[in-house]
Structures are given as structure tokens and as C-alpha cells.
Design a protein around this nucleic acid. Structure first.
Lengths: 239, 239
DNA sequence: CGCGCTCTTGACTAGGGTCAAGTGCAGTGG
DNA sequence: CCACTGCACTTGACCCTAGTCAAGAGCGCG
């Protein structure tokens, strides 16, 4: 099992566990690059990501893409498309992934009959929104160095929630190009930024792994708000 | 009355109209600068904006602000705070405004009993999300000139939905500083961009009014997607 | 009258994009 | 086993967009 830790966080009742279990189909393994969800798919389909990473991105008119967010194990893929229409957003697996499809026809009724689960769902949407907002601030206000470092910290936090972070780093299958598209800069410039971070002994990103050096210094540099993804503090009225 | 056109768009039943009416308190006039909704308010309060403009922004640690969006007549203010926790987001009136408070305790039950209203609500959240995403693309990928022009067009579209746009422009009470904070650039640089737009006879922004010159050229310049806020096309399954 | 706010313009600087070239693999096919 | 291709990454040289610093104009207001 692997529904995002949100749910396991506030001890679920057996009943709620069952409802959650009923919501998901069985695990499916999908090859890297298989498009999970694309904007013009006939009908909305959603998944729980159990293993692997995905990119969530918008395709632009000129053929470029803007990566909006990543999906790591425990995250939902594509719920937004069930709840509301999210225009032109694609999700693509950048590693081999394992997913469990969500029986979307049961989604709304389940969340109506189990209020706490419904709130938890709202929380995930809320978190997506918070990430989108923070992402905007990142690109608009922070320097490339700051936002690169900030992103590494943020992902660390997210992976930690599902037990995939080490005390000094984590595995990260993003290519430099992916990262650059996410952070809103050129791959070339990102490369230079990474070198700076490495040479300052702050963060090393090499061979698919992020390794932190002086974490305190890094947090100071980025002004990382340690609480902003914190479950406790960002949780709405007592889920 | 002035609930966003979404609702009036798909002819509401008398029953739905009543439910909507019951949801709102009576009109209140508030002076410019009165903080409508701030992040650490004791309890979430929400409004329908009937007249005037507001800014939605995030306060940053260093004292700066990042404007996330604007609110124009017909928009909701602060629903996001009822549905989910939106971190550190403030809304402030930049003109004298008229609002109707929303009886938030009735919100959820109303939208449960009137499914189409509930979907319409989801649609507004969806639109906020789409705007946030587009905003990110703006700042990350477009030049200052493009995104300034793009913003003017977007607002035009939004105002048109509530009948506040003229065929060649609209009233816009934003200061250059507000606009700059929204578009993620310096007020100084924005000023230069405005001059460029004016001298190219594309858009004039002066004395609180936006006036378009060669609109076709402007649309071409920005690659403005005329449909992305379009009600018809972005509406989820038949509200 | 003087203060503060918005807007305007100029001169200078720097962060990050563009262009170009090169390295080091991992496949793939002969 | 070796060539050939393609992709991810690296680095350098150059340039342009947008930020910074500085000064001044116009205007509403106490």
C-alpha cells in the first residue's frame, strides 16, 4: 500500500481504510515515458503513484513545456482532472512507475460518505495550490541559485513524508533539462548553478542523487520555510 | 446583485437563485485599503465582490509582496480559505469596494443540496488554478513585454464576462507598482515596457484606463489563447 | 508650503540567455 | 569488437534583458 502519508498520518479507522482500499484498483507497472494523463484524453483517469517519479507540465504553443510540478510516490496523479478542468496539463512518467488506478466513479460518493477522507482530499488539492503559488514566487522573486536550492529542499521534505529521504539527501531521477524546465531557466544556466552549489559545498546533484552539504547554510540561503508543507500546520480544521 | 456570470450563464432555476441569495448577506461598502481577508484572520470569511478591485498577494519574508491575482466585480474573495488552507494569502481592496459577505456556514450544505451550484463553485476554484498556472508560465517563459500585454488582454476578457469592458479597453485602477508586483518585474522596468507598448500603438495605460490600439497585433504578439478563460470550453461536464 | 506618492527618464551593471564546441556514455547494428 | 548515433552534461565567449541607483516632474493633501 502507499496512499500518501496524509491519510496514515491521522490514524484511520478500519472503515476508512476499507473505503480507501475499495477506491483503488490493483497495481500496474508502466514503462518510463508512458503518458499517464494527457490533457485531451477522452475521459479523466486518476492514479495513486506507488513508485517512481512523474512530471506535471503544460505544453506551450511554441512547442516548449513548462514543468509545473513533480509527482513522487504517495502522490495523486490527475485528481485535478476529476474535480475540475485543468487546462492543457500533462503528466508523464520519467522513470518506470507503479500506479494504482482510482475508481473515479466512486470517488465523490466515498468522500461524501467519509467526511474525513473528503477533507483529506481537499487538503491535497490545497497543497497543490500552495505549491503552485510558491512556485510562482520562486520564479518571480528568487534568483536562480536560491530557487534551485529551495527546490532541492522542498523535494527532500516531500520525500521525507513517505520515508524516501535519507538524512543527507535522496535519489532524484530528474535530468538537468527537466529541472531547468521546472525552475524556469536554461539547462545551460542550471548547469552552472549546480556547479556553484557543488563548489560551495551546499548541494551536489550527480548521477541521479541529491546530496546535501551544509544544510543550515542552505536553509539560510533560501529562506526555506520549514513549515510550509508541514502536515500539522497546514492541515485544515482537524482532519 | 452581481454573482459572477458563471451562474447566470447557465440559466438557473428559481430555486437555485434563492439558494444563492440566501448564501449572501447584504451589501457592504468598504473604503480603499481596508484589508478584506488576511492570512491570519481568526476565522475564514468570504465575500462576493460587487464593485471595485482587489489585489490577492503573498507577503514575503523580506517584506516584499508577490501579487498572485486580482479580483474584479463578480469574483469571489476568500473562498479558497473556506475550502482549504491557502497559506499566507492576503486580499486587499485597492479601490472603494462593495461586497456581500458569504454565510460560510451554509456554503457546504447549499452546495451539497444543489449539485449544479457545487459544480459551479468547483469551476471557480478551477479557474483560479488555471490562472495561477498561466501566471507561472507568464513569468517563467514570457518576456516582460509579452506578459504585460498578455495580462491586459486577460483582464479585458475577465471584465467582459461581467459587462465591464468596452470594445477598445477598460478602466483599470491598478498602479504601476501593483502591476509590476503582479507581473514579477520592477516598477521602473514596467514603466519602460508601457512606453514601448504605447509607442508601438498596441496598448495605452494611462490615468486608470487601458486602451487597445491594434488588437490583432497584440494577440499575435502574446499568443493569447482566446479560449483559456472561455466559459463554454473550460466548463466541466455540463454545469 | 512642504510632504509623500506615482510616474518618468537616464546611466550603469549584472544575471541569465544564446551560440558554439566538446566530452562521455549507452544503445544499436554491422 | 568496433563504428555510429543520440542524449545528457560541461564549458567558454558574447550579448541583451531587466535590475539598481539616482534625479526630477507632477499632483493631491494636511
Amino acid at each position: 500500500m502507499l496512499l500518501r502519508k496524509i491519510f496514515s498520518y491521522s490514524a484511520l479507522t478500519a472503515d476508512e481504510m476499507d473505503a480507501l482500499e475499495d477506491l483503488q484498483g490493483s497495481q500496474v507497472r508502466v514503462a518510463r515515458g508512458a503518458l499517464q494523463v494527457h490533457a485531451d484524453a477522452p475521459q479523466p483517469s486518476a492514479y495513486v503513484l506507488c513508485d517512481g517519479w512523474c512530471l506535471v507540465f503544460k505544453k506551450l504553443a511554441n512547442g516548449e513545456r513548462q514543468v509545473m510540478d513533480i509527482r513522487v510516490p504517495g502522490d495523486f496523479i490527475g485528481i485535478e482532472r476529476i474535480l475540475y478542468r485543468a487546462g492543457n496539463i500533462h503528466t508523464e512518467a520519467i522513470t518506470e512507475v507503479v500506479v494504482r488506478p482510482i475508481r473515479s466513479e466512486r470517488l465523490l460518493s466515498t468522500f461524501q460518505s467519509h467526511e474525513r477522507l473528503g477533507k483529506a482530499l481537499m487538503w491535497t488539492v490545497s497543497r497543490d495550490m500552495a505549491v503552485a503559488n510558491e512556485h510562482l514566487v520562486d520564479v518571480a522573486k528568487r534568483s536562480s541559485l536560491e530557487r534551485t536550492a529551495h527546490f532541492f529542499l522542498e523535494v527532500w521534505k516531500r520525500l521525507d513524508m513517505v520515508g524516501l529521504a535519507a538524512h543527507d539527501g535522496y535519489d532524484c531521477p530528474l535530468s538537468q533539462l527537466d529541472l531547468a524546465d521546472l525552475l524556469g531557466m536554461t539547462a545551460i544556466h542550471l548547469n552552472r548553478v549546480l556547479r556553484q552549489l557543488r563548489e560551495a559545498n551546499l548541494t551536489t546533484f550527480r548521477d541521479g542523487r541529491v546530496t546535501f552539504g551544509k544544510i543550515e547554510k542552505l536553509i539560510e540561503l533560501t529562506g526555506f520555510d520549514v513549515t510550509y508543507l508541514e502536515e500539522r500546520s497546514s492541515r485544515p480544521n482537524g482532519i
